[in-house]
């Protein structure tokens, strides 16, 4: 009897995920973005492609770390030769650096716009387009309505959207699948080796729909993500610090 109940509950959970727009990628093949243990935080232990991920950063260094982490994910998503769009108002990404994250920089279109409103419009328009691997948008504010629009666009086209929010004024609830915060960590080298080590980040998954948030230390090593140290999976106790 209990086994039957468990079956029913599992089925209901699956249905809820479907209703929330988290369709499992069935025929296109699951893309393994190489996140290792982080993917266990997501429902079904797969990194959701075809969803909107929100990244929050406060300082310029954090924005660079977030950009690096997203580039690592893009590298995996663009494996099949597809292209992606990077939409922003500043245009500070330096394309030759993307090569280190497994991206051919000539397959990234950088779209520089004047206003945040235009970035959101362009992002929605791009996410509706089938055939793009991913769309990255750098905006400061993202309210619930805007995120809902992006989510609806993504459900149609199955592209992956990344919203990079630099110094957001308020962090409302959004319709995004997850909210991340990437901060740089001191790199480590072999004993007594000179120079600088591999890029290392503290990856905080602040919110994830139907999953378990947590914190990990990750390193970009030999073209892959690598977990370093003990992984800690904790729900964040205090909300993200508001910037006044």
């Amino acid at each position: 009897m209990s086994a039957q109940k468990a079956d029913i509950i599992a089925q209901l959970q699956k249905d809820i995920l479907l209703l929330q727009g988290l369709r499992p990628a069935c025929n296109s093949g699951v893309v393994d973005v190489g996140l290792g243990p982080v993917k266990n935080a997501f429902p079904g232990a797969t990194f959701p492609t075809g969803a909107i991920h929100e990244f929050v950063s406060e300082a310029a260094e954090h924005a660079a770390a977030s950009a690096g982490f997203i580039s690592g994910l893009l590298g995996a998503l663009m494996q099949n030769g597809s292209v992606c769009l990077w939409i922003s108002t500043s245009g500070t990404i330096f394309p030759p650096a993307l090569k280190a994250f497994g991206i051919e920089p000539d397959r990234v279109f950088f779209i520089t716009l004047q206003r945040e409103k235009d970035v959101l419009w362009a992002m929605e328009e791009a996410l509706k387009c089938e055939g793009l691997a991913a769309v990255v948008g750098e905006v400061r504010e993202l309210d619930f309505t805007a995120s809902r629009r992006l989510q609806l666009a993504v459900e149609q086209s199955r592209a992956t959207g990344f919203v990079l929010r630099h110094q957001p004024r308020r962090l409302h609830a959004t319709a995004c699948t997850s909210r991340w915060r990437i901060t740089p960590l001191a790199s480590q080298l072999e004993a007594r080796m000179p120079g600088m080590g591999f890029p290392r980040w503290q990856v905080e998954l602040l919110k994830v729909r139907n999953g378990r948030p947590g914190t990990w230390a990750m390193e970009w090593f030999a073209g892959k993500f690598r977990q370093v140290g003990e992984h800690t999976m904790v729900a964040p106790q205090q909300p993200v610090r508001k910037i006044v």
Binding site: V83, G91, P95, P96, P105, D106, V108, F109, F110, I111, T112, L113, D118, W121, A122, E125, A126, C129, E130, G131, L132
Partner: peptide
């Protein structure tokens, strides 16, 4: 599809917003 998407973006926002870089 992508060419048409870029056309729509430049059509709305004006020319000179789409950049692609070569080494």
């Amino acid at each position: 599809n992508i060419a048409e998407l870029l056309d729509r973006l430049t059509g709305k926002m004006g020319p000179g917003i789409v950049h692609r870089y070569l080494p």
